[in-house]
Design a protein around this nucleic acid. Structure first.
Lengths: 111, 111
DNA sequence: CGCATGACTAACAATTTTGTAAGCAGTCCC
DNA sequence: GGGACTGCTTACAAAATTGTTAGTCATGCG
């Protein structure tokens, strides 16, 4: 999916080396990622289908992709319970809470 | 540049309606935007060429594009002084400071 | 068994973002 | 008046992200 020889890729590297905030930003950019994280902040534990109901516009593929990336970045974890897969926030994921809340609050304060 | 009839575009709408944090996130996502903002937090006032020196890998086109978007979103403003264009943070831009610093700090705390 | 549901994946297409190369108007300086 | 620099823009190309459609495999249930 990534082409590790592109200028684009190299620049991304340069950027994250240069600016720590960009690293954090990369973890949470991606369509619907914030929605998924917020819904986990509220409910602690969700299944694939739960997410689809919360964000009906999302397609299976994209949902799976976002969940995969969040999992790879250790912000969420998945585990099986009673034959269902449950997604939950990891400690790392929970530690993002203030940042997420502030992102929302900043926008709200503008209005 | 945008195709206002695509699912992609509609979903972006849905998303920002649904999740305030996503609105904020959109303003600061874009390659090098954080770097540009941080450099303005430090130095208050910069020219186009200054930015090019700070982030040598950036191309003219992309720099101009990012600056334009930041300007359209009113995070920065540009004005002419002594035949040079200077970019500065607006009040709105300055009010992002805590968020930006926290994004960086969160990453740093991980290490 | 036959069908429904949950949690995905594969193949492909559309859209968006980012990068390259070249050029251009305005100002300064010799 | 010829360069050189600043601050862009245009036309084009490459790469990344997002969306569509159609499956797959496992489990549960009447």
């Amino acid at each position: 999916m990534r082409k590790e020889s592109s200028t684009n890729f190299e620049n991304q590297q340069t950027l994250t080396d240069f600016c720590n905030a960009s690293k954090t930003l990369m973890l949470i950019s991606g369509r619907w990622k914030l929605s998924l994280l917020f819904s986990l902040l509220e409910h602690n534990s969700r299944t694939f289908s739960d997410f689809k109901q919360i964000v009906p516009a999302i397609s299976d593929r994209i949902l799976a992709l976002q969940l995969k990336q969040l999992t790879e970045d250790s912000l969420i974890a998945k585990q099986k319970r009673e034959n269902f897969m449950f997604y939950t926030l990891t400690e790392k994921g929970k530690s993002l809470k203030d940042i997420l809340v502030n992102l929302a609050k900043w926008q709200t304060n503008l209005e």
